[in-house]
Every structure is written in C-alpha cells, then in structure tokens.
Computed example of a mutant assay.
Amino acid sequence: MFTSQTSMQTSSFQDSIDVEEKDIDYDNEDIGYNQKIQLNCYYTIYLYQGTRSEAAADGNVAWSQRRTDSTASTSQEDFSLTLVDSSLPSEAEPELRCYISRRLSKGALLGGMGNIATVELSSVPEAAVGCYCCLVEQERSPEQPDAEANGYVICLMGGSEKGLNLFRLELDKYVQGLQSSLQTPELVNLENEIRPYLSRWYEESVMHIHRVVQMAQGSICFLLHAALSHKHVEVTNADDRTKADVARFIRAASLQGLVQEDMCKTISQEALTDLIVDCSTSPPMLSNTVSNRFCDDWIQAFLKAAERCNPFLLRQILENFKLKAIQDMNSLKRFIRQAESSHYALFRCCQFLQSCGNGDVLIQNARAEHRDMPEACSIIHVLDEFLSEQRAQG
C-alpha cells in the first residue's frame, strides 16, 4: 500500500512540475514570445467622453487638432474616443480604436475592471496580440453627480490573451497607478510622466518574476518556502525595484487569498526569524534559510524557464507550484479528519507527510487551521513528533 501510494503521489507531482510546451503551449505562436526574438509590446491611451460632455481643453490648439483628426463615435453617438498617445504603428491604431468602440458599445468595458482578449491588427508583425483594456473613469464633480462618465481607455498589448491573463492582477494594479494622473483632460504630464509609465508596463508588470529567479538562481527554493510559510522576507543592500520585485514574487508564490486570512496571520506571527536577502553580492547571500524537498524539486523547472527568458511559462510554473501545495494541504486535511476515528488513517497521514516532501509547511498550516479543534490538535501533535523523528534520523 505504501509503495503504491508513493508511486501515485510521485506521478502526480511530476505531472505538476513538468510544464512543457506540448501541455500548455506557452511559447512561440500561443503567447507571441520567442527567446530569440524580443517581444514587441505596445500601449495606447484614449480619451473617453459621453456625447453630452463638453469638448476638452478648448484652449489647447494641439489637443483640439488631435481630437479633430482621431475621434471615433459609435452609430448611436453615445460616446467618443480620442487618441491621446500610442506606440502602435500609425496604420494599426485605427483598427484598435474600432475594436475598442465595439467593446464599449456592447458594455464589455466596465470602469476600473481590466478586460483581456485577442486583437487582430494587420500592421503589427504579430498580426494577433493579447490586449489588456481598462476604462479609467474620471471623478465626477459633486455639483454634477449625474453627468456623463468621462475617462480614459488604456490598452496594453503584447504576447497573447492566454499569457496576459496570467498577469491580470499585476496589470490591474499597474493601470490603477495612473489614476491620479488622469483627472484632467489636458494631460499636461503626458510627456514626462504618463508616456514613460505606459512604456514600462511589460517590464514592471510581467518581468518581475523572471528577474527574481535570475537573481536568486538555485536559492529560489528558500523564497518559495518562505512564501508557503508566510515568513517575512527582508531585502538589504538593494535598489527599490529589486525590493519591490522580491515582495511581489513572495505575494505571487504565497497562498494568501487561497487559504483563510486569519490563518496566514497566525502562521506569520509564529515565525521566529526573517529570511534575509543580502544583495551586496551576486548572486545574493541569504540568511536564516529554510527549505524542504518539495521546494527543492521545483528549482530546475524555474531555472530552465528563466534561461528561455519566458515570463509566461515562469508564471504558469509558479501557479502549478501553488496548486500542488494546495492539493497536498487538502489531502492532509482529509487524512486528519479520518484519523480522528481510525488508527490506520493516522498511519496514512504519516506516510503521506513522509512522501510529499512538504511536511513542515503542511503541519504548520494544519496547526493554524485546527487550533480550536482539540481532537485534530492532538493528531497534529503526533504527526509533528513523527516528522521531528524523521528529521533526526535523516
């Protein structure tokens, strides 16, 4: 029984860790990304106005001319789109504007909610690209609460719909970072603030996981373990971008949002030491490191994807890592319930913890989740002692 169970768990784990092109096809045509060719990224921003709104910036001649040359309205004349700025080829922008107009007419773009789809643009090398669109509405005046909603439509294009969907939360947050800069129709800060910000969307919203894996190399297992353990990570002797990258990697690799929030806080408070990442050397020196066989087994998958410079594949591997951890947590939870009335189930718990390689993390989460259940706590105590004996023998 033990051999059969271990074999099945090993097979399941290998299925999770072997993220190949034949399985998810996240390379070349599917994501529009090839390690030999730099991914083309584009952005476009439009002024969105209801037809009853007054024309924006009447005193600005250049702005008024741009509105005359590049404004599109639907047949119902209920809104207009005015090109503000774009990195697309000039021939491709009208195609995108027609696409956005259709989406707005169907009510498919809601204020503050990003929408990702595939857009066919004949004048770009890829012909079809993933496009993230978001309508950022301007704040309405208290004196005119019922006025037509005005705002800006921001489009970020690159890779594929499938690839961008992996980074939806990052893209939402990145676009929200422009909220305060988009409250005036004149956009006097276009050159110095908005355009540079939109130009960096791919580097800032997609490439952070790749940068962390490249920086950490084989030590990535310690960051993965810290994320699963809700352990605080402190980055020293590094610039702000590196600190932000590591923090975002930890959030992306953690199970926050997938397990109870109070459980995460309980585990985090129990951590005795922080993981220290000292970036004064390359690769960085890590202190207070803890890992396990489960995290170690994922190292090569991350490093191989990083070598191929494929951030979409890296994100998929990270999601598979979390999925496998959640599956193991649910398995242990089921075994613990069974063990309350069966000694054989307790034996199976011990077998499972021994074979999965992630026993310390699973016990830690189980202890926090069952802290108000005396019978479960006694079983977890036995399992904890079993793991301690195994570590002492190993």
Rank of each mutant, 00 (worst) to 15 (best):
T6A: 13
S7G: 08
D15P: 00
D18P: 00
D18Y: 06
V19G: 00
V19T: 01
D27Y: 05
D30K: 07
I31D: 14
N34C: 09
L39I: 13
Y43G: 07
L47M: 05
T51K: 05
A55Y: 12
S64L: 08
T74M: 03
S86F: 00
S86Q: 01
A92H: 02
E93S: 13
L96E: 06
Y99P: 01
Y99I: 11
S101G: 07
R102Y: 08
R102P: 02
L104G: 11
I116Q: 05
E120F: 01
L121Y: 02
A128Y: 05
V136P: 05
E137V: 04
P142Y: 08
A147I: 03
Y152K: 03
K162N: 11
L164H: 02
F167I: 10
L169F: 07
L169G: 06
D172M: 10
S181T: 09
T184V: 14
P185Q: 12
P185V: 12
L187F: 03
I194Q: 00
P196Y: 05
P196M: 09
L198P: 02
E203P: 02
E203Y: 06
M207Y: 04
V213P: 03
V213T: 14
Q217A: 13
I220A: 13
C221Y: 01
L223C: 12
H225W: 09
A227P: 06
S229G: 05
H232T: 15
V233N: 11
T236F: 00
N237C: 11
N237I: 08
D240R: 04
R241I: 11
T242I: 14
A244N: 10
A247L: 08
R248E: 15
I250V: 14
S254A: 14
L255I: 14
G257M: 08
E261M: 03
D262G: 02
K265D: 11
T266Q: 12
A271G: 03
A271I: 02
D274G: 06
I276C: 10
P283K: 09
S291Q: 08
N292S: 10
N292M: 01
D296V: 05
D296E: 15
I299A: 07
Q300M: 15
F302T: 06
A305P: 04
A306L: 08
N310W: 00
N310H: 02
R315D: 06
R315F: 00
N320E: 08
K322C: 03
I326Y: 00
Q327N: 14
Q327T: 14
S331Q: 11
K333D: 15
F335C: 11
A339S: 15
S341V: 12
S342Y: 02
A345M: 03
R348N: 15
C356V: 07
C356K: 01
I363G: 10
I379H: 06
I380W: 01
V382P: 02
V382M: 15
E385L: 09
Q390H: 07
Q393V: 08
G394S: 08
G394I: 02
